[in-house]
Design a protein around this nucleic acid. Structure first.
Lengths: 119, 119
DNA sequence: CAAGATATATAGCAATGCATAGTAGTTGCT
DNA sequence: AGCAACTACTATGCATTGCTATATATCTTG
């Protein structure tokens, strides 16, 4: 429960909300930069500020949903050494959706700045 | 139910998620630009792209929560004409929190762009 | 006075996502 | 053989949001 001046508490709750939506876009952007497998994605995105504690249980359901939506495809790849890995790749459709997401995100940022001036 | 290539459907669901968190920040930014009352805020934010259908039932609960968190204060003001209005103003604490929200938002945007390069 | 615009507020609902935690299998090292 | 690290995935529960609908009251206008 957030105290009246518990900045960390207020921000923490806000971040957990702000992450929604953003995370899917971030994940899509990560795959757009090059195919990757689940475990690698988790390790990679853990380095993004605010995602230090990213769990696999968060990533896999999103990957499944994105595959159902046709944003990405998955493909098993047998490696020279180690267990086979499931690589995810963005589809053409996924690339288009990502572009629109980014445009909307940019519009949101612009609307935010616009408030400052509009007295 | 989103079809495999139903771009509008996919984006719509994404936007409804991306709005979370963003809306609170937008509202705080609006009040930071100058005090306002609920009905006015609704009319004002309806002009922001993506919020054309913003409802009062969405705004008032958020204002109440923000007041409970100490981000804003509310004050009844008797008008020369018309019913009295309840004006909301950001507190010092609210201004600090808004600044941090914006910083986090900017960091998120930066992390998004960073993905493109990191192959 | 009646109708409509203005203004604030709450209750209930549907949808969603995230985190925790656990399952299961493989590979490599000692 | 045994253990740690790697890899993929699922289930459940919690918390939250935003919308719809509703209630209430005042003011303005015809």
């Amino acid at each position: 429960m957030a105290d009246m001046t518990d900045k960390a508490g207020v921000l923490e709750r806000w971040i957990s909300q702000a992450r929604k939506g953003y995370f899917e876009m971030l994940l899509l952007a990560r795959l757009q930069a090059g195919r990757a497998y689940g475990y690698q994605i988790v390790a990679s995105l853990k380095q993004v500020p605010g995602f230090e504690n990213l769990a696999e249980g968060t990533v896999y359901p999103v990957l499944t949903r994105m595959r159902n939506d046709g944003l990405v495809t998955a493909e098993w790849v047998a490696e020279d050494s180690g267990a086979p890995r499931k690589y995810y790749t963005t589809t053409q459709f996924g690339a288009e959706v990502l572009a629109e997401m980014k445009a909307i995100w940019a519009a949101m940022s612009a609307a935010l700045d616009a408030q400052e001036v509009t007295s």
